[in-house]
Amino acid sequence: MNAQEFKSLILSKRPRYAKSRIPVMEAFANKGQSKSEYSQFGPLYELYIYGFRLGLKKGLKLSLPPRNLTQDFLEIGKWKRDSSLVDFLLMIIFSHADEIGFDWNDLEDMEDKEINQVVSNIIEFIESYANGGLQYLQEEWENDNLINSSYLFVDLMNE
């Protein structure tokens, strides 16, 4: 398998999120609402990415609950099409190769089963850090610790 085929396999996946995160996602994501209590982060997938980055930055890795308590998200390849956002996200993920159990040098020689395991590890990596970041955001929101600012995400990353 070459790198482009590997990337396409990853982009076809639909990460999940905990259904318990829906209230915070609705509170902070721009879903066409004209008014909100907080400055909007953007579409749901952007908030999911912010949650991932926040979780990764703060080391908040949190496994998802059982499948019946989660919901599938949009395919990674449909996040911000024709932009470098997903490529940037993948670079961040691959910089944690030891955590996902992946070595680029092994890609060409991997069997399908091994490749599928690496892709599964990548998706689990995204899900767990996104879940941790979204939980952190949810707790801060529920405890009224957030200041409404257009720099809210930057402020949270700098804490």
Results as ranks from 00 to 15, higher is better:
Ile147Met: 11
Trp104Gly: 11
Asn121Trp: 05
Asn143Met: 08
Leu69Ser: 11
Gly42Trp: 06
Ser20Lys: 14
Lys19Pro: 02
Leu146Gly: 09
Tyr48Ile: 11
Ile126Phe: 12
Ile76Asn: 04
Ser150Glu: 15
Leu60Gly: 00
Asp98Tyr: 06
Ala3Ile: 15
Pro23Asp: 13
Ile76Arg: 02
Ala3Pro: 00
Tyr17Pro: 02
Lys61Asp: 02
Ser150Asp: 15
Ser84Cys: 05
Arg14Asp: 08
Leu62Ala: 05
Ile115Gly: 00
Gly101Thr: 07
Ser36Leu: 08
Arg21Cys: 10
Ile22Arg: 12
Tyr38Leu: 14
Ala27His: 06
Leu85Val: 14
Leu69Ile: 02
Arg81Met: 12
Met1Ile: 00
Tyr50His: 14
Ser120Asp: 13
Gly101Phe: 05
Asp103Pro: 03
Asn121Ile: 07
Leu89Asp: 01
Ser150Pro: 07
Ile126Cys: 04
Lys31His: 05
Gln40Ser: 12
Asp103Trp: 04
Met110Pro: 00
Ser149Lys: 14
Tyr50Ile: 05
Ile10Glu: 07
Ile123Asp: 10
Glu127Ala: 06
Pro15Cys: 10
Phe52Lys: 04
Asn68Met: 12
Asp87Val: 03
Gly55Lys: 01
Leu89Cys: 03
Glu5Leu: 03
Ile93His: 07
Asn143Arg: 08
Phe41Thr: 07
Pro43Gln: 09
Asn30Trp: 14
Ser149His: 13
Leu54Thr: 07
Leu137Cys: 08
Phe6Trp: 03
Asp98Ser: 12
Ile93Trp: 06
Gly132Ser: 05
Val86His: 03
Leu69Tyr: 13
Arg14Lys: 15
Pro43Lys: 08
Tyr129Gly: 01
Gln135Arg: 09
Ser120Cys: 09
Trp79Met: 11
Leu69Lys: 15
Lys80Leu: 07
Glu159Gln: 10
Trp79Cys: 07
Val119Gly: 03
Asp87Arg: 04
Glu139Trp: 12
Val118Cys: 02
Arg81Asn: 10
Lys58Phe: 09
Glu114Tyr: 01
Ile122Val: 14
Phe73Val: 03
Ser84Tyr: 08
Tyr50Ser: 11
Ser36Trp: 10
Ser34Asp: 15
Ala130Met: 10
Met1Asp: 00
Ser36Val: 06
Asn143Leu: 11
Ser95Lys: 09
Arg67Thr: 14
Lys57Gly: 02
Glu37Tyr: 13
Glu26His: 13
Asp72Pro: 15
Asp72Trp: 14
Asn148Asp: 15
Leu134Glu: 09
Ser36Gln: 15
Glu37Asn: 10
Ser8Thr: 05
Gln71Arg: 14
Ser83Met: 04
Asp98Thr: 02
Ser149Cys: 12
